[in-house]
Amino acid sequence: MIGNLKPLEILLIIAVIVLLFGAKKLPEMARSLGKSARILKSEAKAMKAEGAADDNATAATVADQTPQQAAPRTIKAAPGDVTSSRPVGEPNHTAQG
């Protein structure tokens, strides 16, 4: 789709975006989008690592028949943003009725 756009059309689209959002908001929006992408990427890596660790722990538990204590989980923020890191409680799987 982008390959079919001519340079004049691309400039027109950029001009409309600048008019809609304002020049002052665009850098802030780009920073926010980048930060969100970094957080999403780090969470995806953490989930993959946790899944691999859970698979290994399950295999070890089955082999040894001894349950292992899980480390507390923490949501990690973007690099350099230590103010938004916080511990996360495990979900309660008990049925209430």
Rank of each mutant, 00 (worst) to 15 (best):
S84P: 01
I75D: 14
S85T: 15
D55H: 00
G80P: 06
P27V: 15
A44I: 08
E9Y: 02
A70Y: 08
L33N: 10
E28Q: 15
R73G: 02
G89M: 05
K45P: 01
P72W: 10
G80R: 01
A63P: 04
I2H: 05
D55R: 01
A59R: 11
M29P: 04
M47A: 00
L40P: 00
H93M: 09
M47G: 00
P87T: 07
G89V: 06
L5T: 03
A30W: 10
K6Y: 04
P87R: 04
Q96P: 07
Q69E: 06
D55E: 01
T66A: 01
R38L: 06
D54K: 04
A63G: 05
D54M: 06
A71M: 07
D64Q: 04
F21E: 13
D81M: 02
V18M: 15
P79Q: 06
A53K: 07
M29Y: 15
I10P: 01
I39G: 03
G34D: 08
E90R: 09
E90D: 04
K6T: 07
I39S: 04
D54E: 02
E9T: 06
A78E: 14
T66M: 03
P91V: 14
A59S: 04
L11T: 09
D55N: 00
T58L: 12
E50Y: 06
K24L: 05
L20Y: 09
A63I: 09
V18H: 13
R38M: 06
I17Q: 11
T66C: 00
P67A: 07
T61R: 11
L8G: 08
T61M: 11
I14D: 08
K35Y: 11
E28S: 13
Q96R: 15
P87Y: 06
I14T: 06
A37N: 11
G51R: 00
S85Y: 05
V18K: 15
T74S: 03
L40N: 06
A95N: 07
S84L: 11
G3R: 05
P7F: 10
L40T: 04
E50S: 06
A30E: 15
G97P: 09
S32T: 13
A77C: 13
K6D: 02
T94A: 11
K24V: 13
I10C: 03
T61E: 13
K41R: 13
A57C: 05
L8H: 14
T74A: 02
L8N: 14
A77R: 00
K48Q: 09
T61L: 07
A46S: 02
K25F: 12
D55A: 01
V82Q: 02
I39M: 08
A30K: 14
Q65H: 08
K45M: 10
S36N: 12
Q69C: 00
V88I: 12
T61D: 08
V88E: 10
L11A: 12
D81P: 01
F21L: 14
I75P: 00
G89F: 03
Q68C: 01
A63Q: 14
E50H: 03
S32G: 13
K76T: 13
H93R: 14
L19I: 11
D64M: 07
R38W: 03
P91S: 12
I10E: 05
E43F: 05
D64S: 12
P91A: 09
A95H: 09
M47D: 00
R73N: 03
N56H: 05
A71N: 09
